[in-house]
């Protein structure tokens, strides 16, 4: 069978199983969105703490690193004996995997604010909290957001593995399709995921540009 025929077959498969597709897609999106929100809620504050406290930076970064270094499948596999099967254990695995890009970007974003800027803020009489709120975070937001974007796009891919521990999602069609040699089913599961990742990346890119605002755009028009 040629690739075109495969594509047509998968399109037909999708049409015949559309309600099921919507169900899987919705599971997939839920996994991605919930785990991503949890990761943001944990990684951004952790990054802020790490950026402001050198002694905690090492331990915090190593937590994120460990979570990222373990192969995704291994994390999913590890979650299984600990938390069992289903949606929630899958969330935990995806959440752990999504943390690091956000964490490192939060730390980098805050730390990369120019020393002179911080010194000026200190010298003008800002407290540490004011410096964080008024200077460091606003300047770091585009970088933090880039971390969230990376993390979310990876997350769409990683969520395919949730199927292995009963988390559902588009992985169901892909994995069972491979087992059955049913390419139409594999493609019907894989292509929407790829499109989802691309769409997510573009939407985030758009927001990122907004967030960067005129201050960042200004770099291109700056004259010496």
């Amino acid at each position: 069978m040629g690739i075109i025929a495969d594509l047509i077959a998968s399109y037909q498969f999708l049409g015949e199983n559309f309600p099921r597709f919507l169900e899987l897609l919705s599971q997939h999106l839920q996994l991605v969105i919930v785990s991503e929100i949890l990761a943001i809620a944990v990684a951004v504050p952790m990054g802020i703490v790490a950026a402001r406290n050198e002694r905690l930076r090492g331990p915090i970064l190593s937590i994120g690193n460990v979570a990222q270094t373990i192969p995704t499948l291994a994390i999913i596999a590890l979650v299984f004996p600990l938390l069992g099967l289903g949606f929630k254990p899958s969330l935990v695995g995806l959440f752990a995997y999504a943390i690091l890009p956000i964490l490192t970007n939060t730390i980098t974003g805050i730390e990369d604010v120019e020393e002179g800027t911080i010194e000026a803020a200190t010298g003008m009489g800002m407290t540490d909290n004011q410096i964080l709120r008024k200077i460091q975070l606003p300047l770091a937001i585009p970088v933090i957001f880039a971390g969230i974007r990376t993390s979310a796009v990876i997350n769409v891919g990683t969520a395919y593995l949730a199927f292995f521990i009963g988390g559902g999602g588009l992985g169901l069609w892909v994995v069972s399709g491979i087992r059955l040699y049913a390419f139409d089913q594999v493609l019907a599961g894989a292509i929407p995921g790829a499109l989802l990742a691309i769409a997510m990346d573009s939407i985030f890119a758009l927001i990122e540009r907004r967030l960067g605002g005129e201050a960042i755009q200004g770099t291109t028009t700056a004259s010496a």
């Binding site: 002179g116 800027t117 009489g125 300047l139």
Partner: peptide, 17 residues
């Protein structure tokens, strides 16, 4: 004290945002 003393450093001290 710092709020009562004006402070100017090289141009990098401006807040770009």
């Amino acid at each position: 004290l710092r709020r009562n003393i004006g402070y100017v450093i090289q141009e990098i001290g401006l807040f770009d945002h």
